[in-house]
């Protein structure tokens, strides 16, 4: 579904990713770890087609990113559930509108989707915040809303950047369980996290692998959990 082949990314002469190769296929569950600034977010943005590598090739759903038009990249993103750490919301719109954004841009919002969004927001504990503007919410609430939005589209794969970074343990486990449920249905998940306790908690639940990014190199800590 997503293939990175010998990808190199540099910012201002500083190499962030060097010769990274990764393949995300149906059923895969990857935890992506590494120190801050190691390039986890960059790797996720590459997978989302939000940036191009300096060297190497990125393929989204079998198509080379370099040959994709902006429309094709947008179509690919519609098949993904993406959760970033920041810049995820339109601050002037209520939270419910933000959660429904993937369908707003598709031009198809109906009562059924609104009901689904409602259920998801209730499930992530945001039932009372539908009309709230994003800047008035805590970091944890925003992350839960971002995850609800990513899952509302029934994505073919999930890319999540520290989705539990601001959540309490109970909510973190709840979200992890949901991602594992999705994965059991065949949805690949690539989740960047520095929470080793969460990775350990996933061990009995999913056949996940841990990737480690350090000094621009991606190593498969390999071993399935």
């Amino acid at each position: 579904m997503i293939d990175l082949s010998q990808v190199t990314v540099a910012f201002g002469g500083r190499v962030v990713l060097s010769d990274v190769t990764l393949s995300l296929q149906p059923g895969d569950f990857f935890f992506l770890t590494g120190p801050s600034g190691a390039g986890k977010t960059t790797l996720l943005r590459l997978c989302a087609g939000a940036m191009a590598p300096a060297k190497g090739e990125v393929r989204l759903f079998g198509r080379p990113l370099s040959e994709m038009t902006s429309d094709a990249r947008a179509s690919a993103r519609r098949r993904m559930g993406i959760v970033y750490q920041d810049t995820q919301f339109l601050d002037h719109l209520p939270l419910e509108e933000n959660v429904l954004l993937p369908f707003t841009v598709r031009g198809r919002l109906d009562a059924e989707l609104r009901a689904q969004a409602d259920d998801l927001m209730t499930w992530v504990g945001l039932a009372g915040h539908r009309a709230a503007l994003p800047p008035t919410l805590s970091g944890g609430e925003r992350q839960r809303a971002a995850l609800a939005r990513a899952l509302l589209t029934a994505p073919e794969l999930v890319l999540a950047d520290e989705p539990t970074g601001n959540l309490d343990w109970e909510m973190s486990l709840k979200l992890l369980t949901l991602l594992i449920e999705l994965n059991r249905l065949g949805t690949p998940v690539l989740m960047a996290t520095h929470d080793l306790a969460l990775i350990r908690a996933a061990k009995p639940l999913v056949n996940a692998r841990v990737l480690r990014l350090k000094d621009g190199q991606l190593t498969q800590a390999g071993a399935a959990l």
Partner: peptide, 11 residues
């Protein structure tokens, strides 16, 4: 944000 959720540039 709009690109993140799959908006096309024309939209």
């Amino acid at each position: 944000v709009l690109r993140l959720v799959g908006a096309r540039d024309t939209w």
